[in-house]
Amino acid sequence: MLNRNKKVLCVNLGYCSGCVYYANSIIRNLTLEKEVWISNSCIEPYEFAEQKLKVAPGKLNFLWQSLLFLPWYSLKLFILILLHKYDSVIVFGPHGWDFIFLMLFRLCHRKAYYVVHDGIMHAGDDDIVHQKLLVLAMRIASNHIFLSHYVQALVTDKLCISKPYVVIPHGIISYSNNREPICEYKKKPVLLMIGGISYYKGINLLIESLPLLNFDSIGEIIIAGSFAVNVPQPDISKYTKVRIVNKYLSSEEFDAFVRKSDFILMPYLEATQSGVAAVSIGYAKPAIVTKVGAMEEQFGTAAYYMKSITSIDLANAIHYAISDPQKYIKIRSELKDKCDELSWSSLSQKLSEYICDK
């Protein structure tokens, strides 16, 4: 018999992006008795959190808040664990405090589940301190929750960390209930790169491919999302059909851009799993993507794959994708099927059962 009376503490100290969307969606649908602690700086917070911790982004904030607030939170949690308020914890990473919450539960001989998105930070996003804290958290946790088998293998092979684990893939991301007809295809489609624009997402590859594209067959190319501090905004002044929106997108803005688009551009230089792939699936917008990380694990055959990571192959993949309406309709149909498979209720049910069995 599954014991669904176990009380689980869910900790999510993220601020924004797909990691927070994943955490919120899993927590909402967990069938276990739970309590939720989140950051008070979260842009899209879980609505019914019992505790909002004083945590804000930035290295200086991390330092002074670790000195001022973390000892109090740690003491409070330690007492609550000793009073048997919680049976286990799920920490939705990554954050520099993750290892503290995991360690307190391990010291009290409780299960400590850690959600590992990447394991090894992406090129351009890597930070030695955060990487070390991430590795420390993975080593302390009693169990891992991965989003893909690719990341599980990466952590085992590259970091030599092996713990009992379960794979709970990224469910769909959609801010809209509107569903467009599968048969719809524009003669001049809109191509979209969306989300945080980091180096590893291949923004340079996209810019290098622009001179190779036939814009007579393209309605518009939109690059929407805030650029990382180490990624300069490119000069696109000579391309009238290319638009950059360099800002953090609200849910409404994000939804509007995706619904306007016909293809999602994902010329990633590297990847684990991807929240943008979950967007492609959630909105049934076919992606043009490189075969890196867990992209094939997420998409299966429901994507247009580049032959290699070059600007020429990106341009070729775009031309191929926009020239075959029947292929486009077929892939959209496959994405809609995947959308049904990756519902958050079924994913959370799988996680609930995994925790109840332990």
Rank of each mutant, 00 (worst) to 15 (best):
A228F: 15
A228G: 08
S250I: 02
R259S: 12
R259D: 06
I223Y: 00
Y239D: 12
I203Y: 00
V229E: 15
G202K: 06
L206Y: 08
A224W: 10
K238H: 11
I203N: 07
I194H: 06
F215Q: 01
Y248M: 13
F257P: 04
E220L: 13
K201D: 02
D255F: 00
Y199I: 01
N246W: 02
N204P: 03
L212G: 03
S217V: 06
Y248F: 15
Q233N: 05
Y199L: 12
V258N: 10
K201R: 13
E208N: 14
D235P: 09
N230M: 09
I203E: 01
N246L: 07
K247Y: 06
N246E: 03
L206R: 07
A224K: 05
A224P: 08
Y239K: 09
K241W: 06
L212H: 03
V245E: 10
F257N: 03
F227W: 06
I236R: 07
A224V: 08
K247L: 02
N204H: 12
L249T: 08
S209E: 08
G219T: 04
E220R: 14
S250W: 04
L206Q: 10
K238C: 12
F227K: 09
A256Y: 01
K201V: 07
G195M: 09
I197W: 05
F227N: 04
V258E: 11
R259H: 06
Y200P: 10
G196N: 12
K247D: 11
F257W: 15
L210C: 08
V258D: 12
I244P: 00
V258C: 14
Y199D: 06
V258M: 14
V245K: 13
G196P: 00
F215R: 02
R259P: 04
V242Y: 06
L210M: 12
K241M: 09
G219R: 05
I244K: 01
I223K: 05
L205E: 04
A228I: 00
R259V: 02
P234K: 11
E208R: 14
S237D: 08
K247W: 09
R243Y: 05
G225R: 07
G219Q: 08
L206V: 08
N204Q: 14
K260V: 01
F254K: 13
F215S: 03
S250Q: 05
R259Q: 15
Y199R: 07
